[in-house]
């Protein structure tokens, strides 16, 4: 898959995984990996980018006597998901057309 496209998709997947509740690194990887290939080392820069552009915030809380960082989606982050869903309606139209035509060949 095109690397830019993949990067954008992973970012939206990561954001979506935070919609229900604030979540932490290990859980993010487990939740997203069935749908997109993601590893610890790719998640780190993604979280940093999302944090820098204001899509998420983070805070550190105690868990089992140690610290764990929880990430929470911001209104800006939610807006990015909505925007993605809108944009991809067009992409999906094109996809179904391509799929249909390819099936005839």
């Amino acid at each position: 898959m095109d690397i830019q496209l993949k990067r954008g998709l992973i970012e939206i997947c990561v954001l979506s995984a935070m919609l229900k509740e604030p979540t932490y690194g290990y859980k993010l990887i487990r939740d997203v990996s069935p749908y997109m290939e993601i590893s610890e080392s790719t998640l780190y820069p993604i979280l940093k980018r999302l944090n820098d552009d204001g899509s998420i915030t983070s805070r550190t809380m105690e868990h089992n006597g140690r610290l764990r960082k929880y990430y929470q989606i911001t209104p800006d982050g939610r807006a990015r998901i909505s925007e993605f869903l809108r944009d991809w309606q067009d992409v999906m139209k094109a996809y179904y057309f391509i799929e249909r035509e390819a099936a005839h060949v």
């Binding site: 690194g25 290990y26 990887i29 610890e40 780190y44 089992n64 140690r66 764990r68 960082k69």
Partner: peptide, 13 residues
């Protein structure tokens, strides 16, 4: 601390 947390979470699981 990101990697330390991930190792702890994996061992916890």
């Amino acid at each position: 601390s990101y990697y330390s947390e991930l190792i702890d979470d994996r061992t916890e699981n």
